[in-house]
Every structure is written in structure tokens, then in C-alpha cells.
Design a protein around this nucleic acid. Structure first.
Lengths: 212, 212
DNA sequence: CCTTTTAAAGATCATATGATCAATAAGGTT
DNA sequence: AACCTTATTGATCATATGATCTTTAAAAGG
């Protein structure tokens, strides 16, 4: 009988530089936990990685420490620090800024690993999750609200709930795709564009909805 | 030392009719799994219920069977069979129908237990989840799309992605509240009303946005 | 009050799981 | 080729966990 945590017999033992091995483990853990959830078992992860279970604990103090590394890996660079400034650049038409942001942002978040790890960590009440959403609120949506108000030409002016509605409607595309695994558009850019235009139409004089 | 799965010493042993006990277990399991996730441990659940862990298996074949009962309990009556007909009742103004639906629907789904169990089961790939969303698509959004197209007075006509965007933007209120635990409006009806009005404004001659 | 039924508890099993540590061998250095 | 360092393995531990089974006692019937 094979002992617990041993490697599949045929595979040769490969020695890697610690940094490289650590990175391989984190990347594998991201994929693995995204698929099965944060309660995924270390032995299954090790099998996926083609290493022994005990090796994981050579690189991480505990499973929790590994999950923290997964969080760090996945949350990193997910919100570019350049956006608050770019969103407030009034030299560029508001519609262009909004579309640029959501085109860029959706390409970052409509991704299997991110969507699912974000949801798993949200359900688990992870601190990083709250900080991320807080950052989204203060650094993205708040400036955006101000910009739309300034550009607002109609009597009606948007509030923060309206902005969360715009945001949520767009994010929900990714939720349908990666959480619920529903059929969804391969290219979401058109849906995003239409959502943004409907939003602007409600508060601003429409810049240019279509060319037809 | 207390044996595994025994009850807290002070509590008297209470005998209940099987149906009643079973219902108490299911209700407790809904609350428990909503809070900690479907990987919650049977012993913790039993403690919450004030019963022994072994008693759970007197009423359910296995933990999976219990979770199926939780699904059934939570998914039941979540989509009223009357809505497809009501949404197509052209004697009522479209805006009124839409608002009635989302007011009613949001009061059903903006609920801690539902939101979280739905998300947990979605991440787990539960069959019931897919069937629910399929039903939402075919029985609610499809008729709705037809109604809006009929009422559409502008050149632009909505597609299914637009409707999912409306839907997602509204559902996202509940996600913010119960999954991410963010501050959110105690009464979402105003946000819903504004989202619906923005949507109709884009495709139909606006019926009545505000009275001011 | 005694008997009977069976809901519920208590004890226990087999396996799973995170974690530890000594033994091994891959790969670089001399 | 011999040697050394240390990445990786294999064995193992302590506890957790789903599940089973025997024992106990609450409540209904007479």
C-alpha cells in the first residue's frame, strides 16, 4: 500500500530552486482552490502539483498561510493605481473614460481564478475582500460619481447606489460566467458599452450612442 | 472527558414528534450552512441545534442528504409560478409590472440564508442552481424581453444581455449585503425603481419617472 | 403505576486531514 | 568521481469527521 502523501510512482524526483518551487505551488494552489474552494484538501493539491503533501509544509507554515499567499497572488495588481487619476481626466470625454475603465477592468476580473477566489474569500469574510471593495468604493466609484455629476446635464443626478448598480450589472456578467457557469457572451464589451450608455443617457446628454 | 457528539450537560432530553424534529434540523441546517458554508461540520450543527451529532443521522441518511434537504427548503417557492403570466399582462403598464416583479422578487432573495446558500451551491456546481437560473431565463427574462420589445418606442431594442444586466444590477444589491457584508440601503426599493426607470428610459417612452 | 414504544444520547469505528520529522537523493562544487 | 548541501520524499502523529450501533429514558396507552 502506498503511504499517505507519497508521489505517483513513475514520476522522477525533481529538484527546483526554492523560489521557483514556491511560485509553482502558489500558482497551482490558485487554480486548485478556485476550482474546489478553500476547503480543498492539501493532499489533492499536492497530487495536482505532482509533489508530496509534506512538501507544501516545507514552503508554508500552515494551510492558512498558503491560502494567504493565494489571496496575495490573486488580489495583486487587480486595481491599477492609475485609474483614480485617469477617471478624473476631464480632457477625455466621460463616456470614453468610463468605457476604458470597464473594458480594462472586465478583462482583469472576468477570469475564472479571480472570480471564484474572490467569491470564496468573500463568503469566508476575508479581510482582504473588504479592503478591496472599500478601495473600489473610495478610489473608483466615488471619483466616478463626482465626474458624472459634473457632466450631468439633466435635472436628475446620480447617487452612489446608482453607481453600484452600474458596477454590479457589469460584474454580474463575470458571476454568471464563472460562478454559475451559465452560457455568456464570449466578448462582453458590447454588453458593457450598452450598459454604460444607458447609464449616461439617464444623467447626461448622450455623447454618442451609436453611428447608425 | 465528554464523549464526542454528546449534548451539553444541563439541557434536558426533549422528545419531539419526528416531523417536528426533522423540520427543526432542516431549519437549523439552513441557518448554519448559510453562515459557515456547506463544508460546515455536523458536530457544530448539532451543537447549534442543542442535539447530539448522531441524531442527525437518525433523520438523514448522510450529510449529503441533509444538504439536499437544505437546498429543497431554500429553493422552494422562490420563483412564484404566477409571475410569467403577470409579467405578460398588458392591461397593466409595463413599468408597473416590472416594479411589482422586482419589488416582490427582491423581498424574497435579499435574505441572508437564501443569498448565501444560493452562492455556496452555485460555487459547488449544484444541479438545482442551474435549473433555477434556467427557469429565471426562460420563464421570467424571456417573457420580459418580449414585453419590453413590444412596448419599445425607440429605434433601439433590448437583447437578452441587456436584461441580464438589469437583473444583475438589482441582484448585486443582495450580493453586496449578504455575501460581501458591505453597508447597503436598508430599503432597496428606491434603487430598484431607479434602475428600472433607467432601463425603460433607454428603450421605451418613459411612462412616469418622478412626480417632482 | 406499570408497560411499551421509540426518540435521543453515548460510545465507538474507519477514515480523512493538517502537520511533523527523519531518511533519501538530486544536482552543484571541487 | 567523491562530497556536500538541501529539496523532496516516506512514514507517522494527533485530531477531526462522517457514520454506525447499542443503550437510555421520555412520553403515550392501558
Amino acid at each position: 500500500m502506498e503511504p499517505t502523501g507519497s508521489i505517483s510512482s513513475t514520476a522522477k524526483r525533481r529538484r527546483l530552486p526554492p523560489d521557483e518551487r514556491r511560485q509553482k505551488i502558489v500558482n497551482g494552489a490558485v487554480a486548485f482552490f478556485a476550482k474546489v474552494g478553500l476547503e480543498g484538501k492539501t493532499r489533492d493539491l499536492a497530487t495536482h502539483l505532482g509533489i508530496t503533501q509534506s512538501l507544501l509544509f516545507n514552503y508554508f507554515e500552515s494551510k492558512d498561510a498558503l491560502i494567504e499567499a493565494v489571496y496575495a497572488q490573486v488580489y495583486i495588481d487587480r486595481l491599477s493605481p492609475a485609474w483614480p487619476r485617469r477617471l478624473s481626466d476631464r480632457a477625455v470625454p466621460l463616456r470614453t473614460r468610463l468605457l476604458a475603465f470597464y473594458t480594462d477592468y472586465s478583462s482583469l476580473i472576468f477570469e475564472y481564478e479571480w472570480m471564484r477566489i474572490f467569491m470564496f474569500s468573500g463568503l469566508a469574510g476575508a479581510e482582504l475582500n473588504r479592503r478591496y471593495l472599500d478601495h473600489m468604493h473610495k478610489m473608483i466609484l466615488q471619483p466616478l460619481l463626482e465626474e458624472i455629476r459634473v457632466a450631468s446635464a439633466k435635472s436628475m443626478t446620480p447617487d452612489m447606489e446608482d453607481l453600484w448598480n452600474l458596477h454590479g450589472g457589469i460584474v454580474y456578467i463575470g458571476i454568471r460566467q464563472h460562478i454559475y457557469r451559465m452560457p455568456s457572451p464570449e466578448d462582453p464589451s458590447q454588453a458593457i458599452e450598452r450598459a454604460v450608455d444607458r447609464f449616461l443617457q439617464a444623467f447626461c446628454v448622450q455623447v454618442s450612442a451609436d453611428m447608425s
